[in-house]
Simulated assay, not measured.
Amino acid sequence: MSVSELLAVMEEAVAAREPLVLGTLVRTSGSTYRRAGARLLVTKGGVPVGLISGGCLEPQIAKTAREVLATGVSRRIRFDMTGEHDGIVGFGLGCRGALDVLLEKLEPWRLDAGTRRLLCGLNASHAPRALVVAFDAPPALEGLLGSLLEVEGGSSTRSASAEALREAARGLADEALATDKPLVRKLRVPEGEIECFVDLVPPAVHLTVIGAGPDAVPLVAMARQLDWRVTVLDHRPAVCDPARFPGAERVVHAHPENAAAHIPTGSHSAVVVMSHNYFVDLRLLPTLLKLDVAYVGLLGPRRRGEQLLRELADEFVPTPEQLERLYSPVGLKLGGDSPAAIALSIAAELQAVLSRSEGVHLRQHAGPIHVSEDGAEPESELESRKSA
């Protein structure tokens, strides 16, 4: 389920002024389908939108969400699949792990647009954002469970525990941002302890595709499925038709010397050059390598990229750091030469690079697929995931 689909449900609820239930995966152990921070929405009609498991747990989550909608009281539910015979009885998921999900009632029209987007996983800033979720507390403090958000029309008077929790949560968010890791911590307030999860929502990926030819169409479509924000640039006005790229935010007619002005930059920004024009690429390459982007992919055989760099040598010699960001030829070696297969190859490499992953076969990967929010790396993770 994509971020855009979650956001569409949220905005529909705002327009209708209908409440939702937000489900947040706040803690995992062992092997689970998704990591802590995954979210889903349950509509007033009891329909779950989004995935926290592979679809197996969502019916039970939706059933409990109806109770949360009726009472307005947040609930934490735990699913434990670590039993010896869970593949036969119980949830029968095959993944030997446990997870905790917090369900909270939301009145989304009371949230500003930026907060609604953030809760759906869309971070429009250029840096990670931290979301603190209080998910476990003694009975006297259960009213404080939920995402610690400022809401429009909220009460101007809060209890001492609520104020203390918000103040401590700010420090916890700062710690998570400083370490670039999600956290689970117990925070002390006057009436007891509350356990909190800090989720880090990364910035949205900005992909700029230079070249609006037919082979760019599947790449843009695939990027949209991944919830990346896409800009398409081309020096030929005849092909700059937004109707050909419904997944792109912008389709821009721009010549190589003006391209930089239209390219988003930052640690989650990438450029893929597929102009099929040697002289256009020759003019573009120095500009692109000087930009603050994480990835520059160049379509074409290796010798073509090497020739471009040799021809540029008199006026531009890339630094080692710039060369590290240049992927020529672009993509992972997956096989296939159709436009869709090439798009998959490029998207897979880009996902690996931005996630700082090796991009290897999982069966050859010795460690866990996902590292849990507390940094633990369960030895059984890989074997469990194989059976899931």
Rank of each mutant, 00 (worst) to 15 (best):
S4A: 15
A13I: 11
V14H: 01
E18V: 05
S31R: 09
V42I: 15
V42K: 05
G54W: 00
L57M: 07
I61P: 00
A62E: 05
K63C: 00
L69C: 00
V73P: 00
S74Y: 04
M81R: 11
M81D: 13
E84W: 00
H85S: 05
G94I: 14
C95F: 12
R96Q: 12
L99E: 14
L102E: 11
K105Q: 13
P108C: 12
W109R: 06
L111Q: 01
D112G: 08
G114D: 14
H126C: 03
H126E: 15
P128W: 04
R129S: 12
R129I: 02
D136N: 13
A140I: 14
A140M: 07
L145A: 08
S147A: 15
L148M: 11
E152I: 08
G154C: 09
S156I: 13
S159Y: 12
S159K: 10
A162C: 05
A164W: 08
L165F: 08
E167I: 01
A169C: 09
A169M: 05
A169V: 08
R170Y: 09
A173T: 05
E175I: 07
A176G: 12
L177E: 07
T179C: 04
V184C: 09
R185C: 07
K186Q: 01
R188L: 12
R188M: 04
I194C: 08
V198P: 06
P203S: 11
T208C: 06
V209S: 07
G211Q: 11
G213H: 10
P214R: 12
V217T: 15
L219R: 01
V220C: 11
A221P: 13
Q225Y: 01
L226C: 15
D234Q: 08
D234H: 09
D234S: 04
H235Q: 13
P242V: 07
R244I: 02
E257C: 00
A261V: 09
S269P: 02
A270S: 08
V273N: 05
M274Y: 08
H276R: 13
F279R: 14
V280S: 06
L285I: 04
L285C: 02
A294Q: 02
A294H: 01
G297I: 13
P301C: 06
R303E: 15
G305E: 12
Q307P: 00
Q307M: 06
A313W: 03
D314P: 01
F316S: 07
V317M: 06
P320N: 04
R325L: 02
L326G: 09
P329M: 14
G331V: 08
L332P: 03
L332R: 01
L334M: 12
G335A: 07
S338Y: 15
A341R: 10
I342H: 12
S345V: 11
S345L: 05
A347V: 07
E349N: 02
L350V: 02
A352L: 10
V353A: 01
S355I: 00
S357T: 10
Q364A: 08
P368V: 02
H370S: 04
V371W: 03
S372G: 10
D374L: 10
D374P: 03
A376K: 14
S380P: 02
E381I: 00
R385Y: 15
K386T: 07
A388C: 15
